[in-house]
Design a protein around this nucleic acid. Structure first.
Lengths: 340, 340
DNA sequence: TCGAATTTTCAAAGCGCTTTGGCTGAAACC
DNA sequence: GGTTTCAGCCAAAGCGCTTTGAAAATTCGA
């Protein structure tokens, strides 16, 4: 069933039918009802390719997905996607993933924009001075950054959590509990969130005269394995830390393994705080010792970004609006008073 | 730059240019060279919407993504997607994810097929008598199932790993090591893979006169939490198992936690074998005790499925071809001789 | 009641591509 | 030399929708 058939059936022109269906004002209410009704009854759905060709609108949200042998999409992505999908589903939006190697990223963005394949784009895991943001800004397609960049000389729309405050609070808690040797096992240092977290931790510690030497910092991709090896190294130091802050629960699994290897207990010997992105398959309450966390649902972020993207597509949101979500600090059994 | 402009520039008709670019034979070799050359030089790329409208081909692989508050996309999906993307990227294919609730699934499939939004579709996590397979079969769109269904009265194309053999081998190993009380902590029982795994394990055990009572079986969504609680229950039995087979490494993390709670050692008290889908962020070698696994890369499966889907779109593959991959059994420190 | 203003509807022109069917000129055949 | 054949090219007709510009129908004001 296409427009032509439907309009013939109703004895109306394609124009009128199209307008009736798309809510244009210049069509009599009664006619509209007739049309809408018939469309529903016959299950008419406009062909999206045709519509796209005619309007230039794609009805899709795009994401350029880094791939390649060595690149791994991390589990955060699924959770995020899940949230994005939640919203998209109820708003007739689909997602287009365009796989691309790191090197072809720019080309890929240019392509999907030039081809009008998507109406809006989101960017994840931004780095400082992220070139993708500049590019999209120039290309003039609606976009939102999940996270933030730094050092860009213009503003852009983003949604981020307050990583700095989160780790500030976490560090402050540890300091208040008397910890003086606190380590930080962070995510990849070329990502802005990792920078912010370190900044927050450092600020809290410095404020109390506690040092955060580089020897007690590790910044690596967030895998169990890296958590383990980072913890091994840090625990091997003469001045062993009495608390560890970590950017990822997956890494924390590795840290716990290292602690066990070293015969150290949580929180007896070492207190632990980690950031929790709220994975349904890995809960801080269920750690050997319930894990204290800074918590923020990455899934909700996905929903919200989809919502804002939709608003942008519809012209309801404009400008470089930044949104920063607070992060909860949830204290659980993995933190305790420092041994004196 | 569009076809019209390009053809005018070359002083050729759109027809010829289009044909030259698409490799049709009725164009002189020299002309083709000229055209291809100019296209590259001016960065001409056919507008996909227009092409889609004209050909009915979408250049996209579709996936109906289950979403909803309670539904969680599991991390397997990302790994798979990663593989799919790997292939798609190099073949000008994009992925279209259509989020859908479980109830709307059928409608969504119908929609994307009717609209020609995608050229092919893949289905994951098939259940026995999976209605999606029947539907796609009727709709006549190319598709491939990742995994297998059971009890369908027709054949269909799929790619699966040999779950039954994998767990057969694993169980056989445990039996050979003298284990007589072996537990199975499996994935969701309405998924075919879980059924196959149980079948394999049971077959190996029965062959050696070892029982697998339901009391020693748990089948749940594969989260750390479920692994933990399943293990707790099973370990609480009077006749405690001396070995546990598990369908997921994430669950195995929970099992290990439960073992530790119970003061049991691996492999001293309990041997452990798990299935490994090869997540980059969680490696069996890095478990407290290196974990013996049945291993099969879910990412490679993604690549292969994309490849086969592309072949189907191009008419190079047809019929109900099923492909079953063997699974490696990798013995590591988590299995040992049963205590006598 | 008549012309103007306003609604409501329509025919037709795109959007950028593929593809059908036909045309042209040169090579091949008898 | 005249007729076929065929390679190589083209004009034009879609694909199914939106949107422009104009016409028809209706309402309104005086």
């Amino acid at each position: 069933m296409n427009l032509k058939q439907l309009s013939r059936m109703l004895d109306l022109s394609q124009t009128t039918v199209s307008r009736a269906l798309n809510g244009y004002p210049e069509v009599a209410e009664e006619t509209r009802r007739r049309v809408v009704d018939a469309a529903k009854r016959h299950g008419y759905r406009p062909n999206p390719s045709a519509r796209r060709l005619a309007t230039g609108k794609a009805g899709m949200i795009g994401y350029v997905m880094p791939t390649g042998a060595s690149v791994e999409i991390d589990p955060h992505f699924v959770e995020f996607l899940s949230g994005l999908g939640d919203y998209a589903r109820t708003h007739e939006l689909d997602l287009a993933l365009s796989p691309s190697t790191m090197e072809d990223e720019e080309t890929t963005y240019r392509r999907i924009v030039a081809n009008r394949q998507v109406d809006a784009v989101y960017i994840s895991s931004p780095r400082p001075k992220d070139s993708r943001i500049r590019l999209l800004n120039e290309l003039g397609i609606p976009f939102i950054v999940h996270g933030r960049s730094e050092g860009l000389d213009f503003d852009y729309p983003f949604l981020d959590i307050d990583n700095e405050a989160a780790f500030y609070e976490a560090a402050r808690l540890l300091v208040q509990l008397g910890h003086r040797r606190i380590a930080l096992i962070n995510g990849n240092p070329d990502q802005t969130f990792a920078i912010h977290r370190e900044r927050g931790a450092r600020r809290a510690m410095t404020a109390s005269g506690v040092e955060l030497p580089t020897a007690r910092i590790r910044a690596l991709p967030m895998t169990e394995e890296n958590g383990y090896s980072a913890a091994r190294e840090i625990l091997a130091a003469k001045e062993r830390p009495t608390a560890i802050m970590c950017s990822s629960m997956l890494m924390t699994l590795g840290i716990i393994r290292a602690l066990r290897d070293a015969g150290l207990s949580v929180p007896g010997d070492v207190s632990l705080v980690a950031h929790d992105d709220v994975f349904p398959f890995l809960r801080p309450e269920n750690f050997p010792v319930p894990l204290a966390t800074t918590r923020s649902s990455i899934r909700s972020a996905g929903q919200r970004i989809a919502e804002r993207l939709a608003a942008r597509i519809g012209g309801l949101e404009e400008g470089a609006r930044g949104e920063v979500w607070p992060v909860d600090l949830v204290v659980r059994g993995s933190v305790a008073q420092a041994r004196t």
